[in-house]
């Protein structure tokens, strides 16, 4: 490549990639800088670890980290675990498989907030679920389901919204495996389980990693589901961050933001690595 070509490529990349790197880079940089007291909007900027020290000693913050990680990991696992068998089932077309696929993917069209509303509607104190359970006589009176302490409502919502996405990625990966390759494995004596472990799993692991990582990051930074259906006595990281920002405490918000980035990055690296080990059955 000549210098001229390099200049052309660089200029071409500027408005797209350049902007991405600049904006996202700045955003991440600001988050980290502000968490150390730099880059302040109002007031003095001074390098300090006080904000980190402050929050690391704060129980609410620590609970949020644990809570958001829990939501992220569980949502990713539930979505993928549900999506896998469905994707395998739908790999080869059969009569009605298109319809089933569309029904399963329908939640992709529904905005998360709408999903939350629909769900709350169903599980609310006088909602249809409570009515139904009383009607068939399992429960004596209505139960309070909406803001349960284990965030089951949030997890159901996350799975409801994200499973179709995992399904989409996994079906794509699965359809990339040719029939002959699976037949060859059968011919060499591999039963259903061996075919899954040795052929399907390793060949779809990258699709699965993509699904896990994206779902995990989305769920770790969840705000809307948490506010509407989450436990009252716990806050997600995004909720905490927005709270600090609303009070004008940018530095603490930055600490929480930086934490979220760290959790998102490390969490997805760990999850991606783990899924590779689990799916491949070996380190390689």
């Amino acid at each position: 490549m000549t210098a001229r070509q390099w200049i052309t490529v660089t200029l071409l990349l500027m408005p797209g990639l350049g902007l991405i790197v600049w904006l996202i880079g700045t955003v991440v940089y600001i988050a980290f800088a502000q968490s150390f007291g730099l880059y302040n909007i109002n007031g003095e900027s001074a390098l300090t670890t006080a904000y980190w020290a402050d929050l690391l000693g704060n129980n609410i913050y620590l609970r949020s980290v644990r809570y958001s990680t829990y939501i992220g990991v569980m949502s990713a696992i539930f979505s993928v675990v549900l999506a896998y068998p469905l994707a395998i089932w739908l790999r080869k077309p059969f009569t009605g498989s298109m319809t089933i696929g569309s029904i399963l993917k329908a939640p992709l069209l529904v905005h998360g907030l709408v999903a939350a509303f629909l769900f709350v509607n169903v599980i609310s104190y006088h909602g249809i679920l409570n009515q139904f359970m009383q009607w068939i006589g399992i429960w004596d009176g209505p139960h309070r389901l909406q803001n349960d302490n284990n965030a089951i409502a949030v997890l159901i919502l996350q799975t409801w919204k994200n499973m179709p996405f995992a399904l989409l990625l996994l079906t794509g990966a699965l359809q990339g495996i040719s029939d002959d390759v699976l037949d060859a494995a059968r011919d060499l004596g591999a039963g259903s389980w061996a075919r899954f472990r040795k052929i399907i799993a390793p060949l779809t692991v990258s699709g699965m990693q993509a699904a896990i990582v994206i779902i995990f990051i989305g769920a770790v930074s969840d705000f809307a589901f948490q506010v509407i259906a989450g436990p009252i006595n716990r806050q997600s990281l995004a909720q905490l961050m927005v709270g600090y920002k609303g009070r004008g405490d940018w530095n603490s918000a930055a600490v929480v933001g930086a934490t979220m980035i760290i959790v998102a990055l490390f969490g997805s690296a760990i999850l991606a690595g783990l899924s590779k080990i689990v799916m491949r059955g070996r380190l390689k």
């Binding site: 996202i24 955003v27 991440v28 930074s221 961050m241 927005v242 990055l265």
Partner: peptide
């Protein structure tokens, strides 16, 4: 890159 940075972080910062 924009897909892996949580949207609320992008928004706030």
């Amino acid at each position: 890159l924009p897909l892996v940075v949580p949207p609320f972080i992008t928004a706030v910062f």
